[in-house]
Computed example of a mutant assay.
Amino acid sequence: MFMLKSSKSYSLLSNKCFQSRNFRVNRPILNTVNLKGRSFLTLKDYNAEEIQHILWVSADLKHRMKHMGEYVPLLQGKSIAMIFEKRSTRTRMSTETGFSLLGGHPCFLTPQDIHLGVNESTTDTARVLSGLADIVLARVYSHSSLEHLDKDASIPIINGLSDLYHPIQILADLLTLQEHYGSLRGLTLSWIGDGNNVLHSFMMSLAKLGIDLKVATPKFGSKLQFLTDPAEAARDSNVLVTDTWVSMGQEEEKKKRLQDFHGYQITMQTGSLAAPDWTFLHCLPRKAEEVNDDVFYSSRSLVFKEAENRKWTIMGLMVCLLTDYKPQTPKLRF
């Protein structure tokens, strides 16, 4: 059995200033984090305090704009170039609507508009976009494309998804769990499914935030193999998570993958082994073989709150990378 345990050494922020859905101040908060000008390719490059700051800004914007009805045009006069080699619903909608809501102008670029490294070299594309936009979000097949863009660009690059990592999804997951449980530290999250980019990003971040991680993957050529028994992974966990078993580009492997993942569907029986307060996450789109309707549409499921938080967390991230904005609401209780 493999279990990635969190480390107490990552406790960098006070955890006394935010209760789930209820703000309260205990003492003045001094903000020392400034991420302006940074790129966001992988959570490996961000420490606990920086991740917590992004979540704080995201929660602040959600509170001010959704619940208080304020207009907060922090990105007025700025533009974002959105490069999409892969199709998307949540990433495109959250980025376009979020950037516009903050007063900026999003520019969507399909593979027909900008074929990275084909119609024009990636180096030239990076330099051109640096003179035309303030920030780039790229959803690509190969993570090396992002690294190449970042190397030659003079503006921040955000990973909208690559074959190795999906860090913006993890920000949404963390904010959703923060809202639901009131605190992240001490939770146990169980991943049941494929060893993919979402799992890689969980591995780059959870231990920093005091969250334990358990992983169950089948006995086949997965990059990550820690457990093979879904029941063992689910036992005593607070959060059950899965994702697609057949990612884009793996369609030819579908038949074999469905055979390999037989028995990995998350059901209420799986949940019966988890902690009493267990919840379910899925980054969507979901297939029935991954999780049944009883779980997916139950009160345990946070998937639609999770999907909405893609918007607030990408907004928070873009504000952090483009401005030195200081949140107006109390720090979250981590």
Rank of each mutant, 00 (worst) to 15 (best):
D293G: 05
L102V: 10
E308R: 08
P28G: 04
S145I: 09
W56R: 02
N197P: 01
S144R: 14
L199T: 13
L132F: 13
Y181Q: 15
S154A: 12
L30H: 11
L101K: 10
K223Q: 12
F99I: 03
I170Q: 06
L101E: 15
F226R: 14
E179N: 11
D194F: 06
A126L: 05
L273V: 03
D173G: 08
S79M: 01
C320G: 03
L161G: 07
L30W: 06
R24C: 13
D243K: 02
R310F: 04
V241F: 14
L258V: 10
P28M: 07
I266A: 08
K214C: 02
T270N: 08
G271T: 02
E85Q: 14
S205Q: 05
K256L: 10
E179I: 11
E252P: 02
H115S: 12
V215F: 06
Y71Q: 14
R21K: 13
T279I: 09
G131S: 13
M203A: 01
H143F: 03
G186A: 03
S20R: 13
P218E: 02
T42S: 15
E96M: 09
Y10R: 03
S183W: 00
T244L: 12
R38V: 05
V295D: 10
A307R: 00
S190W: 10
R92T: 09
Y71H: 12
Q269P: 06
V33K: 05
C320W: 00
L146Y: 01
Q169G: 02
Q250T: 06
Y297W: 15
S201L: 06
M203G: 01
E308K: 05
T91E: 08
Y325I: 07
L12W: 08
H166L: 07
A153R: 03
L149N: 01
V136G: 04
V291Q: 09
S14R: 14
R310E: 00
W278P: 04
D229I: 01
R27P: 03
T125M: 06
L206I: 02
A275H: 15
R300A: 15
Q112P: 04
L224W: 12
W312H: 13
K86P: 06
D229P: 05
H105D: 10
I135K: 02
L321Q: 04
D163K: 06
G77T: 00
T176V: 01
R185V: 09
C283H: 12
D260G: 01
D150F: 07
N47T: 03
A216V: 07
I170M: 01
S247W: 03
G103M: 06
A172Q: 07
T279V: 15
S7I: 11
D236I: 04
G193Q: 04
V303T: 15
G271W: 04
G77P: 00
L146P: 02
Y165W: 08
I158S: 11
N159W: 11
L30D: 11
P28Q: 07
G195N: 10
L55E: 01
S301K: 07
V215A: 06
A81G: 04
D60W: 02
S222F: 04
G103E: 05
P230M: 05
L184G: 04
K151L: 12
R300F: 13
L12P: 00
N196S: 08
K151D: 11
N238T: 07
K219R: 13
R235F: 07
E85P: 02
R139H: 09
L171S: 10
D134E: 07
V57P: 01
I135D: 05
T323P: 03
